[in-house]
Simulated assay, not measured.
Amino acid sequence: MATRKAAGQAKAPARQTGTPARPRRARDSLSRDIIVAAADRVVEREGLDRLTFQAIGEELGAHPTSIYRHFRDKEELLLALIDSLRHRSYSGGMVATDDWLADLRSQAHLIHDHYMRYPEFALQMALRRPTDFGSMEYSIGALRRGGYDREQAALYARALGQLIRSASSIQAALSALPSEVQDADELTWQMDQRRLDPAEYPEIAWVGEALPGIRDPRAWETALDLLLESIERHAPGA
Rank of each mutant, 00 (worst) to 15 (best):
M1W: 10
M1R: 08
A2V: 01
R4H: 13
Q9N: 07
A12I: 10
P13S: 14
A14E: 13
G18A: 09
P20N: 01
A21N: 09
P23T: 11
A26M: 14
R27A: 11
S29R: 09
I35R: 05
V36P: 04
A37I: 00
A39D: 14
A39R: 08
R41H: 02
E44G: 15
R45H: 06
E46Y: 08
L51P: 01
A55C: 08
I56R: 01
L60A: 13
A62H: 04
A62C: 08
A62T: 10
S66V: 04
L77A: 04
I82Q: 12
D83I: 11
D83Q: 14
S84Q: 14
S89R: 08
S89W: 03
T97A: 00
D98E: 07
D99M: 01
S106E: 10
H109D: 04
H109N: 10
I111W: 01
Y115D: 05
P119E: 02
F121C: 04
L123M: 10
L127M: 14
R128T: 06
P130F: 09
P130T: 08
T131E: 03
G134R: 11
M136S: 03
Y138S: 07
L143D: 09
R144W: 08
G146E: 09
D149H: 04
Q152S: 13
A153P: 03
L160A: 06
G161E: 10
G161A: 12
Q162I: 15
L163D: 13
R165N: 02
R165F: 00
S169M: 05
A172G: 00
A173M: 11
L174W: 09
S179E: 15
A184M: 13
D192P: 02
Q193S: 08
R194M: 04
R195L: 09
D197K: 12
P198N: 13
P198I: 11
E200A: 15
Y201L: 14
I204N: 12
G213K: 09
I214H: 06
P217M: 01
E221S: 09
E221H: 13
L228W: 07
E229R: 13
E229N: 13
I231Y: 06
E232H: 04
R233I: 03
A235P: 02
G237M: 01
